[in-house]
Nucleic acid binder design. Structure first.
Lengths: 237, 237
DNA sequence: CAAAGCCATGTTTTCGAAAATCATACCGTT
DNA sequence: AACGGTATGATTTTCGAAAACATGGCTTTG
């Protein structure tokens, strides 16, 4: 007889990662990036315990990991809180992203093979499909977010440095939180589809200088948008 | 009457940081960097528990933090181990350091004020004093290590980006571990004192191009040294 | 009345036992 | 002998109680 479906009572609690701690780290990260937990908000164990159904120490491990990524602020003996946002931090994250992403794009264009080209083309294709389906509020759509993340990830994936890719990933997450922050106040998304298309073409045709210029513009204009439309959230804290 | 010295029985267990977890993170980090714990060595809780006198969960939190810094390798459900070393990783860390440190030196030279100049000059002075006192095995001397770290830190401290400084600090630690790895097999330290002096002068005289070139050479030649004299440790794993 | 000290309360932090998981050796079968 | 599956011991992971700590209000004192 076939193994029955897992009973609700023994449904696995770990949907991502093998350990509960890794799972909670992942869920907390997504929630902070999406601003479901507001910047600066205290992260009290009682509340988290109820929300995530894990114990003190497991939560503590997750919060410690997120603190290292810059999404959580650990105040020794006084608990944790969601990392605050500020204009200064936005500028720093943007600057760091440009510095690193530009270098990684160059390396990827230099080193990328057929598989890399295929990855770039196919992740962009998926992204465009999702945008066609529902062109309204991309950041509200989890699928769009994943596809967008994967497209940018694929662009640099052939750079050859896992070390720099890890740093880039952390910075990308921190920047994405700022995008969410301003999403509710932004009048209309600009033509991101066109920008992504142009970046893809520059990369595939191995035009490094153009790709670098497009990426830098892409990153900086997004950050400018955030600074404009989330201004009231950046100056008060 | 003056407060008596803390009794041995109630001697504080936290010498660094306010929490035990932060203290253990710090001690473990130093021990891994100094190769007191060998690369790839499993980090079993029984052993750590005895060595650091903390409980499972506290150790777990410390290991999680160090995993985010790249000094510990977390294998889900199969424990932790000291991050392995490899030629590839050495190259990546060196490359990343050059990319970031070069940029930060430029920014610091651009933005540094009088306090910055004073910090650079005085940290170099302390470093030279320590080298005069005991010119034998600098990496064996904890004071030299701290002074060396602080000199390089001071050079970039005025860059204006806490975000990039944090990334730089992690990479510096990872590189320092490789230096320790080869220290036992290196015949003689080359003229680091002269290099540090030249870097300081280029920085203070605001000669960014020269400072950048010197720093890059400094970082790369150190890494080359490691690759040469720790070759037998890098190829086997 | 101001300032300092002290207790009460809520929160974080730490601990070791207990549950879950993995690695290994053993056994039976082919 | 080789293979697959299972029991066993070792190790990690998780939990909630208990200790440590910070904060704010209250009392006492100068």
């Amino acid at each position: 007889m076939a193994e029955p479906m897992p009973d609700a009572a023994i449904r696995p609690r770990k949907e991502f990662g093998k350990t509960i701690a890794a799972d909670i780290t992942h869920r907390l990260r997504e929630e902070i990036i999406a601003c479901g937990l507001a910047p600066g908000e205290p992260l009290r164990f009682d509340v988290l315990r109820e929300r995530f159904g894990a114990s003190f120490t497991t939560l503590r491990e997750a919060l410690t990991a997120l603190a290292a990524e810059g999404l959580v602020d650990a105040q020794e003996q006084r608990g944790f809180r969601v990392a605050p946002v500020s204009r200064q931090d936005l500028v720093e994250v943007t600057d760091a992203r440009v510095l690193i992403e530009v270098e990684l794009i160059r390396r990827a264009i230099e080193r990328g093979d057929d598989d890399w080209e295929i990855a770039v083309i196919s992740t962009l294709h998926r992204l465009k499909r999702i945008e066609q389906r529902d062109p309204e509020h991309p950041l509200r759509d989890p699928e769009w977010k994943i596809a967008h993340r994967q497209f940018h990830q694929s662009l640099v994936s052939a750079c050859g440095s896992a070390t720099l890719l890890a740093i880039r990933a952390d910075l990308f997450d921190r920047a994405e939180r700022y995008r969410h922050l301003s999403a509710n106040f932004r009048p209309r998304p600009r033509d991101k589809a066109g920008e992504h298309q142009a970046i893809m073409q520059a990369a595939i045709s191995r035009n490094a200088d153009l790709a670098v210029q497009l990426i830098e513009t892409h990153i900086r204009s997004t950050a400018d948008n955030v600074a404009t439309y989330a201004a009231h959230l950046l100056d008060t804290e």
